[in-house]
Design a protein around this nucleic acid. Structure first.
Lengths: 118, 118
DNA sequence: CGGTATCCTTTCGGATACTG
DNA sequence: CAGTATCCGAAAGGATACCG
């Protein structure tokens, strides 16, 4: 397997567990979201996984973080970058493909599919 | 994590190791490709993984198989279905996104990026 | 040829406790 | 609050041998 393939590399982190959901949460509503807020919005995600996904997405340039260390407790927030927002269009294309060819699929349950911001 | 999300489910099998490469191989050149031919074209893939990926893709309706059991040795061939071909457009969109935002990436090495059928 | 069966290593992610 | 550290079980995938 060749990890130099740009498509492969992209899929590789996008498909990790929770990644899409995190992007989705960051895409909804207000820009900046706190760690605890993200955690609360995703039932069952563990802090370890959330932390490591956010770090990966930062490394890939899809997410940016700002921190206020002077505050106590420390305030840390995340949002999508421009490339992150643009990626949501691609994810939308994936959804459209799926709806074109997978009509027999059950609608998503964790979110109302019609309200899904994807 | 909710496995009812159609986007998540799609990403889930697309990002498995070798899947994209297999789709790419099926997308190139002649329609029907033999098992051994696919295997030979992907250095290092094991028969177990190739077999299981092809099965997943068949289950998802992206790939179809035809077999001639009367021949000896048995002749088995695979090709993309219509939805599989359509998915290549989505994969192309992913590539375009990556090229838009990841210009600093090294070009792919396993294939000449400019010749890549994606 | 076109796979399957078996074994084994590595990676992933869940659970939980802890800290500045 | 915003993570990190540790431990653990499950699952993925590589290596290899084998079979109709």
């Amino acid at each position: 397997m060749d990890h130099s393939c740009t498509v492969y590399k992209t899929m590789d982190y996008l498909a990790k567990k929770w990644t899409i959901m995190i992007l989705l949460e960051l895409h909804k509503g207000r820009e900046w979201k706190r760690f605890s807020e993200l955690k609360a919005s995703m039932k069952d995600i563990t802090p370890k996984v959330l932390s490591s996904r956010l770090k990966e997405l930062e490394d890939e340039g899809l997410v940016e973080n700002r921190m206020d260390s002077t505050a106590f407790p420390v305030r840390s927030e995340y949002r999508l970058t421009e490339s992150g927002k643009d990626l949501m269009n691609v994810i939308h294309d994936i959804k459209m493909w799926a709806l074109r060819w997978k009509i027999q699929n059950e609608p998503c349950k964790h979110l109302d599919c019609r309200l899904c911001v994807l």
